[in-house]
């Protein structure tokens, strides 16, 4: 056995992290899954193994996480993404005490103790309002590249007022704004503010505990990060690859097995 793996099957992407037996990062892989599925999990693991120049037989323990965690039949154990994001964040930045994870279909606020364990958490309800999927739909409605939304919104000086985070209502709201001539940059900035307000209410439910890290795909959106930083009045730390924090945490649990 040369390595352990953490596999995070999210609603839109699958992520794998491989660690060597000393806990050093060997490789990672991110695969667009479309929907939660087993094939993507296997594909993602295979990619990470190839990147690390290992063989499948070199992998010891595998821990799965994310919404599709129970689908990963080749895993030894599954652990919630809540515990995994906490552990992954602690591994990357041990001083972090709060993680805001906004993924494809949900968002979470996790309070982390000094050992990287979950002290408390809050999740959005079953509606995907204000998550990655929400931004995807809005980017299509506005005909703006999803990846460009973050930097685009930073240029806004007058964010539009977007009151609803319901994907359906928000879509019609932004269409109305566009019809009234509101600049796209302001609409995008308004959407980010709406997401920020929703996350802040979850943060307040848990109680803010800086330093705060953001993980999940939406952490790549600089506009959302900036809004959160302003609303929470604290810096938001973003790791180089925020999408793999959950898989990293799962790999750390696998190492401990």
């Amino acid at each position: 056995m040369k390595a352990v793996a953490g596999v995070d099957i999210g609603s839109l992407t699958a992520k794998t992290v491989l660690l060597d037996l000393q806990g050093q990062l060997l490789s990672y892989s991110i695969v667009a899954a479309g929907m939660v599925n087993r094939k993507a999990a296997r594909k993602c693991l295979t990619q990470a193994i190839r990147k690390a120049r290992l063989r499948t037989s070199d992998i010891g323990s595998i821990v799965s996480t994310g919404y599709g965690r129970s689908l990963v039949k080749f895993g030894d154990r599954n652990i919630t993404e809540i515990s995994c994001h906490a552990r992954g964040a602690h591994w990357l930045m041990p001083h972090v005490r709060m993680v805001i994870d906004i993924g494809g279909q949900d968002s979470k606020v996790i309070s982390v103790d000094s050992e990287g364990r979950v002290a408390n958490f809050a999740m959005n309800d079953k509606c995907a309002a204000g998550t990655g999927r929400f931004l995807e739909v809005m980017s299509q409605a506005l005909a703006v590249d999803l990846a460009a939304m973050g930097t685009l919104s930073l240029t806004s000086t007058n964010p539009a007022q977007v009151s609803s985070l319901c994907t359906v209502f928000a879509e019609s709201e932004i269409i109305s704004l566009a019809a009234r001539g509101c600049p796209t940059v302001d609409i995008v900035a308004g959407l980010h503010e709406a997401i920020g307000r929703r996350v802040v209410s979850m943060v307040k439910g848990v109680g803010i505990h800086p330093p705060v890290m953001m993980s999940g795909g939406v952490a790549k959106n600089q506009g959302v990060v900036k809004v959160l930083s302003q609303l929470l009045k604290t810096d938001i730390l973003v790791p180089p690859e925020p999408q793999i924090v959950g898989a990293l945490g799962a790999a750390i649990f696998a190492l401990e097995e």
Binding site: Y67, S70, I79, T80, E81, I82, S83, D106, R117, V118, A119, F121, A122, M123, D125, K126
Partner: peptide
């Protein structure tokens, strides 16, 4: 933890959400 659901309307129930929350409680 919170479980967001309802007494009678099952359209407010998300099994995946509840699974995650319950499992997270036990992990804590």
């Amino acid at each position: 933890i919170f479980i967001e659901a309802d007494v009678g309307d099952e359209s407010f129930y998300s099994e995946a959400q509840v699974d995650t929350r319950l499992q997270a409680l036990l992990e804590m």
